[in-house]
Write a protein that binds this DNA or RNA. Structure first.
Length: 278
DNA sequence: CTTGTGTCCTGTAGGC
DNA sequence: TGCCTACAGGACACAA
């Protein structure tokens, strides 16, 4: 699932390939992939515009176009972006932007839950209201233990649910929330407001570090091939996962006799070590 | 405001 | 073998 490290990796790889190119053609094999505006307006207003830079907010990849136009992608669970040659038509291609130098930016999304949004910088559409309410980037200096403590204070939901709340920790999804809780030695079922001060400090640090590590290793590509880099290469963080996808296997913490368990929290699969996460 | 639940979507795994 | 169902999960609508 593309989370912050995967989207950031895509941003870094794609930016040098896209900047300066003009979008000269738009194909929308799956109209529902367009989040806003309507398909006709999307096609009309994206065509002919040049890419200025690529940015990211949480799990949104933002292609900044000339004159304050923005093209945002949310990859949801199974989406990725690919640079395809003129005659390459990848499976599950939902949107194709033909670029001035001949390549195309292809939005691949088997489950079709991902979306592309076109808008003006000064006019954020309702469909992207979530982006405006996002908390600080956990890899930025704004994300401190004090901030996290403040957001968890008095909350009765599980700490895992709040890590997944984009208003609290933007860019965090199911993989990195489980990994951060493991590194912080905090059990995902814990009531958020009841974490001790040292636990919150550990969690804030763990979250920042695990996301940075994810970026360093170009993200997590699961066995089913979900999430690929724009050149279809795989990430390498999956080899370093401590709990995600490791249920039934021994805990990786040194001298810990635990076996990784899988439970459900708020309808999400959650993995943790019952021995060293308390 | 907070918390929990259902929905979208489709490929895949598992059951019979 | 082949059909069918359950499941995966990010974001959001909605209920309590």
């Amino acid at each position: 699932m593309p989370e912050l490290p995967e989207v950031e990796t895509i941003r870094r790889k794609l930016e040098p390939r896209l900047v300066g190119q003009r979008i000269v053609g738009v194909f929308v094999p799956r109209p529902s992939i367009i989040g806003c505006p309507g398909v006709a307006a999307f096609r009309r207003d994206v065509a002919g515009r040049s890419v200025v830079r690529l940015s990211r907010r949480g799990k949104y990849l933002i292609v900044e176009l000339e004159r304050e136009w923005r093209l945002a992608f949310h990859l949801r669970l199974s989406g990725h972006l690919e640079l395809a040659g003129p005659n390459e038509h990848p499976a599950f291609e939902r949107l194709r932007l033909v670029l001035s130098q001949g390549m195309s930016l292809s939005f691949i999304e088997p489950r079709a839950l991902g979306r592309a949004y076109l808008f003006r910088e000064q006019q954020i559409p309702d469909a992207l209201a979530g982006m405006t309410r996002m908390g600080p980037e956990p890899v930025s200096p704004d994300f401190t233990a004090e901030y996290l403590a403040d957001r968890l204070r008095a909350r009765k939901a599980s700490v895992k649910s709040l890590l997944l709340d984009q208003r609290v920790c933007c860019g965090v999804g199911n993989i990195y929330s489980d990994e951060a809780l493991f590194r912080a030695r905090v059990r995902p079922t814990r009531t958020a407001g009841r974490l001790t001060r040292p636990e919150v400090i550990r969690l804030a640090r763990a979250l920042t570090r695990v996301l940075r590590d994810g970026i360093r290793w170009c993200g997590t590509t699961l066995a089913d091939g979900r999430y690929l880099l724009p050149d279809q290469a795989r990430g390498r963080f999956q080899e370093r996962l401590a709990v995600f996808g490791r249920e039934g296997r021994p805990c990786r913490r040194r001298n810990c006799p635990g076996v990784i368990r899988r439970i459900r929290i708020g309808n999400r699969g959650t993995r943790f070590c019952p021995v060293c996460q308390r």
